[in-house]
Design a protein around this nucleic acid. Structure first.
Length: 213
DNA sequence: CGAATGATCGGCT
DNA sequence: GCCGATCATTCGA
């Protein structure tokens, strides 16, 4: 059966509740087309970042810099930044203009043109490390920092998000603390990471970097 | 398997 | 100068 593919509307992204939007992004499709072919993946893991109160957010306290300014745009823009000098991390900006909420996309299930994704990752075989993790999924999708600030509701945008009429039941969604934010004091415990129960494309927890106290 | 490390750049939270 | 919303690789058990 053919499913309808529709870009999510502006009003999906400009809503106030970034936690609700984060949950609803599970089961939606991230799509890119830079002219050399479409690639698409089903979103299976996300994290919410809610400035100004969230100490784990780059825009904590409404910190406004060249890097973070994309987060202050209207919902539906992309915030992409360089992490550890190597990885490009992709976020969906949410809320009205001036509200620096964002959703980090942490893992995808590859669904369209895995051949091109494999080439971008210099891999041969389709396995979770192709797209399970925020850095690797950007590489697989061809997303880099140069596209930060892109309006994904613009018809010309090479990056956008689609719905394919899929419904994800609430019981299929697991909430847990976010990854790699131990420095964020009380915010580190907030269960703002959401992922699909039992999905093999969810990123693996890394142990070595965990801080104890 | 787990733990340790290097890569490499922007922001100073 | 230090550290981070990460990941691939290496080393040891």
């Amino acid at each position: 059966m053919l499913r309808q593919m529709t870009r999510l509307s502006r009003s999906f992204f400009t809503r106030e509740d970034v936690l609700q939007i984060s949950r609803e992004l599970l089961g939606k499709y991230l799509v890119t087309d830079f002219g050399a072919g479409r690639t698409a993946g089903r979103i299976v893991e996300v994290e919410a970042y809610r400035a100004p109160d969230d100490k784990a957010s780059h825009a904590y306290g409404n910190r406004y810099t060249e890097r973070t300014k994309a987060m202050f745009a209207r919902g539906g823009h992309a915030y992409i930044y360089l992490c550890y000098g190597i990885h490009h991390l992709f976020n969906v900006v949410t809320g009205e203009q001036g509200m620096a909420h964002a959703v980090l996309i942490r893992a995808l299930e590859p669904v369209e043109n895995t051949a091109l994704m494999l080439r971008r990752r210099h891999m041969e075989k389709t396995e979770p490390r192709l797209t399970a993790g925020p850095g690797v999924l950007s590489q697989a999708m061809g997303i880099s920092r140069q596209y930060t600030g892109t309006d994904m509701l613009d018809a010309q945008s090479p990056i956008w998000i689609e719905t394919r009429e899929e419904t994800v039941a609430a019981e299929e969604i697991i909430a847990s603390p976010r990854i790699g934010v131990a420095y964020a004091e009380e915010c580190a415990a907030w269960e703002w990471r959401f992922y699909l129960r039992g999905n093999r494309w969810v990123s693996k927890q890394r142990v070595s970097k965990q801080r104890v106290s």
